[in-house]
Design a protein around this nucleic acid. Structure first.
Lengths: 203, 203
DNA sequence: GTCTATAGCCAGATAGAC
DNA sequence: GTCTATCTGGCTATAGAC
């Protein structure tokens, strides 16, 4: 039997762990730091999650499950290509402005441990390009958009939307922007990115 | 007086450290692992570089100094906008196919420690958007390209070229590509990316 | 310059009282 | 479930012989 206090402790830990892991990664994070962030005794971390590795995996899967549905809207919804591009660019950027460390965290850990993707693929709703590929090939053959491979277009859509968050520290430096100015630039991208892509693929 | 053997040891360490740090990051790397990779006694790492932190900084600055000139070709060379986009997309992708972990390594560590950018900015030849901004504004006012802000275009150019390397593990999963197939896709991007951008900004 | 041995510290994990 | 105390191992860094 689990009472309210238990749920609260487990969730406090998971949220604290998310903040610390997103910032420092698996190897840079300290269990003590997570405990402090959660305002909870360090032993309780082990009581609830057994080990640092298991706590990390819980955080990682939660993070990935936030990202996957967004990608699936591009790959598997029944919107038109234009609507997908417009909606995804708008929604994804809005979402990321609230969770700016998420893509960096996920990609960082996957680069460090590429085999982890294999585990993720078996999960329900792991994004897959097949339907999108059919949609693009159809649109090309019907001359609704210029000839372009679905894989290249898909990579472009993700690149234009995700990179501004991953590359933020560097981009801020290159373009001489304060945090506030950079946030403004990101906000503009909610519509800019879709316009950029659509202008490129229209006939 | 430094003889050949010294130089060799120092370089062996730096190269080994680069490989390990690029893979595991500062906090995930172990001095013993770097020593093994360099086939050298662990004490020598401290003899030559004093501490892990200093060794890391040497590796990081070397890496950044490889990246910066490439960015400066876009920002500060006197090529036309089209030539810049075509040449950068081609050269950068060729370069990154040889150093695929470089952008991930740099962005990872900058995200973990954003203040580090401030140190980099003081370095000679730190990329700056000013000249590029002038060039774009001129081209827009002369109606050579459609209206677009220099910052947004610059972010797009970097995003389309860099993200496919940082996001590789995830993208491979989404588009069901083997390492070999993904490499083929990246190779195509040497020309695809430039085409995609130019189609979007032409009038 | 290169090695072995070890100091000194810190992190993850557990034992056990309450 | 929650706490304190502590074990155990691994890591950076250094001392000191050669």
């Amino acid at each position: 039997m689990i009472n309210n206090k238990d749920i609260s402790a487990e969730e406090k830990i998971l949220n604290a762990a998310r903040r610390i892991f997103e910032n420092k990664g698996m190897s840079g994070a300290r269990m003590q730091e997570i405990a402090d962030e959660a305002k909870i005794n360090k032993s309780l971390l082990h009581y609830y999650y057994r080990s640092k590795q298991l706590l990390f995996e819980a955080v990682f899967k939660t993070a990935f499950n936030k990202l996957a549905p967004q990608i699936n809207l591009v790959l598997n919804s029944d919107q038109s290509i234009c609507d997908k591009i417009i909606n995804f660019s708008n929604n994804y950027t809005s979402f990321m402005l609230k969770h700016p460390y998420l893509p960096n965290f996920i990609l960082q850990e996957l680069n460090r441990n590429p085999d982890f993707v294999k585990e993720l693929i078996s999960i329900d709703n792991f994004p897959n390009i097949i339907n999108f590929k059919i949609q693009i090939e159809k649109a090309v053959s019907e001359e609704k958009i210029r000839p372009i491979e679905a894989e290249q277009l898909f990579i472009n859509i993700l690149a234009l939307n995700i990179f501004p968050f991953i590359g933020a520290p560097l981009l801020k430096g290159f373009i001489n922007a304060s945090d506030k100015e950079y946030k403004k630039i990101l906000n503009k991208r909610k519509t800019e990115v879709a316009e950029f892509i659509i202008k490129s693929i229209k006939l």
